[in-house]
Design a protein around this nucleic acid. Structure first.
Lengths: 222, 222
DNA sequence: CCGGATCCCCAGGGATACTG
DNA sequence: CAGTATCCCTGGGGATCCGG
């Protein structure tokens, strides 16, 4: 990306990470850990291979990722975030929190993946009853599945299926994530095709983080 | 910007705000408040007028800013952030914090403005002695000046000059901001041309916020 | 099949001139 | 002052091709 040529840390951040696809590559590496080229390609539906290749080189040369040749059994290059790249997590979280407000509109063609199902509750909800008993919630959306584990006041998520979940939410992504993120209520989610199976009371434990000014304490003085 | 077509809040955020210049327009409106076209142009050195015009229309139509015809005395349109636009503040803060690490390299051609001098200490430093007496620090860099006011554990900044500052920092932007942000120490800042006048002890009250990941070693690879 | 490289085409961005 | 209009060029999208 052409530099903005401004001595401002926001502008310099965008000089490095403002290119198209760059932050999404960081998202995938952050959510998935070290990835092969093909893993990244799969996690970034719509990216052209040449562009992914270009970006990876740029990211490596600007120090956000490292490329290493994996040990013999794999025999393929692995890309992973450097310290600098990992430090983008707060940026991705802030961006993702802000972007929640746009998750309500339907866009039929959108791709969807399990890791995007998993990060949302981990980053954008808290356990309203941190001293409550451990619980397991199974999420299923568009064939992708993830598991939320409530334990010790912390929210963990992982991909895949749980053996014996306390609660199962199944439906289109908009219904599942819309409900979890507080964009829609249970009734609306039902109308969008959500099925809820098990201990519904657990839903009240997942509290969406305040969206107004979750990170910033702005006076709203304007 | 062409949509990423991914049902992920980060991708949707970038669909709306990921275009070139968009976040910098938000930065200016956030730092300066309501702006006329020319104010924005001045705050965004390097932007082409057609592009600014295009972006403003896009931002208005996506609900991030509002355009209103100012009252008679001014007789010109004012652009300002909507609630949605204001909510970008945490994103800009996170981005700016991350971008600090790139402020050390010199780039002689970079533009510089007073409002970028002001936001850095406000966002990225804390008062290490919150119960200490009020103090006023004058910053001057590249002809741009801003004032830091320490009071009640809070850090306020404003543009311009203070009548009787307790401390004056003057030098190239890289020296002033590098010192404040903890990128360089006082001695290095002096070598870069910083002059310090007044109560140097106040410097220890300005504590750069923790850069959670990787403030440590620059790889210095480049 | 994986990990890209090459090619072509078009949309988006940059610079500047011009107008209400 | 507040934009439009124009021209040019780069960068991104899409498909295909190639070496391992």
């Amino acid at each position: 990306m052409r530099s903005y040529d401004q001595y401002c840390s926001i502008a310099r951040a965008l000089d490095v990470a403002g290119d198209r696809w760059t932050l999404l590559i960081a998202r995938e590496l952050l959510l998935q850990g070290p990835c092969r080229f093909t893993d990244l390609k799969r996690g970034l539906p719509g990216i052209a291979t040449n562009l992914l290749s270009t970006r990876l080189k740029e990211l490596e040369s600007s120090g956000l990722i490292t490329r290493e040749d994996a040990p013999p059994p794999v025999a393929t290059a692995l890309y992973q975030l450097s310290e600098t790249g990992l430090a983008l997590e707060p940026v991705l979280r802030a961006l993702g929190l802000w972007g929640l407000r746009f998750m309500a509109d339907e866009r039929p063609g959108d791709a969807f993946q399990a890791q995007w199902l998993a990060y949302a509750p981990r980053w954008f909800t808290t356990d309203a009853d941190p001293d409550g008993p451990p619980a397991v919630i199974q999420l299923v959306a568009s064939g992708e599945s993830a598991v939320i584990e409530l334990r010790g006041g912390e929210i963990h998520t992982r991909l895949g299926r749980a053996a014996d979940p306390d609660l199962v939410l199944d439906g289109p992504p908009r219904a599942v994530l819309g409900l979890l993120n507080g964009l829609i209520d249970l009734e609306s989610a039902g109308r969008l095709g959500l099925t809820v199976d098990g201990r519904r009371d657990l839903l009240s434990r997942l509290r969406p983080v305040a969206q107004d000014n979750a990170l910033g304490q702005d006076e709203a003085a304007a």
